[in-house]
């Protein structure tokens, strides 16, 4: 429970960060890429690579693997592009391909996978140290600790919950779009989100008693 004078950080959209989910690739750009125009395809790559790479990184927890999976996703996109009929939004359609690639990659190397990406934790620490929005050192320290605990908790989540949380809260997709991306019913998306968040909350705070009835996970 945050203190009464705690000011919540501005929401994602308020901070001006552009969600990949709101990104709309024009049909003419897609058509040109289908016709073999490599410059158009490169534009698509530049526009979408950040989201895809971050999704891969979050699922795989490894930079090298994330880079390989991103490349594989773009190869699959290139091959599948002529079959894109515009029935779904391009980003949702592409994320479905990318998510499948990442999950396949995850399953292939599941046994030797580490739970946390040490390099990301270092990067996270560096960012949090340099990003001093709040002048109160105690508050900065608490925020940092929270985010580090959260990152660790996310890494330990089952991959399906992690994927849904990343798609929803980091990439900004709606429930409907996540359902299309993961090819599950919308209700399942809600369940995955709730279960994932419940685990995160449990790990972040000491367990609460009474009050709301917790469903069994």
């Amino acid at each position: 429970m945050p203190p009464s004078n705690y000011t919540y950080p501005a929401k994602k959209k308020e901070r001006g960060r552009k969600d990949i989910a709101t990104l709309d690739i024009s049909q003419s750009l897609i058509d040109q890429a289908i016709q073999g125009n490599s410059e158009s395809f490169e534009t698509i790559v530049r526009l979408t690579q950040s989201g895809i790479y971050n999704l891969a990184f979050r699922i795989l927890n490894n930079r090298e693997e994330a880079q390989d999976a991103t490349q594989e996703a773009f190869v699959k996109l290139y091959q599948a592009l002529p079959s894109f009929r515009g029935e779904a939004r391009f980003t949702s359609w592409f994320y479905r391909i990318a998510t499948n690639v990442c999950l396949d990659c995850y399953r292939r190397n599941k046994k030797k996978r580490e739970n946390t990406a040490p390099e990301y934790m270092e990067h996270l620490l560096l960012l949090l140290t340099s990003n001093g929005q709040n002048s109160n050192p105690e508050q900065i320290y608490q925020d940092k600790q929270k985010l580090l605990r959260l990152q660790k908790a996310i890494d330990e989540l089952p991959v399906k919950y992690r994927t849904v949380i990343v798609l929803r809260h980091m990439e900004g997709f709606s429930y409907q779009e996540i359902a299309e991306i993961m090819q599950v019913p919308v209700q399942t998306v809600g369940t995955f989100l709730y279960r994932g968040k419940a685990v995160l909350l449990k790990k972040l705070n000491s367990s609460k008693e009474g009050g709301i009835r917790v469903e069994r996970v």
């Binding site: 929401k11 950040s50 971050n54 996270l124 949090l128 990003n131 985010l147 959260l150 809260h169």
Partner: peptide
């Protein structure tokens, strides 16, 4: 939810 959004991108 706010913390999740705050996590920096790789």
């Amino acid at each position: 939810n706010h913390l999740l959004v705050q996590l920096p991108r790789e």
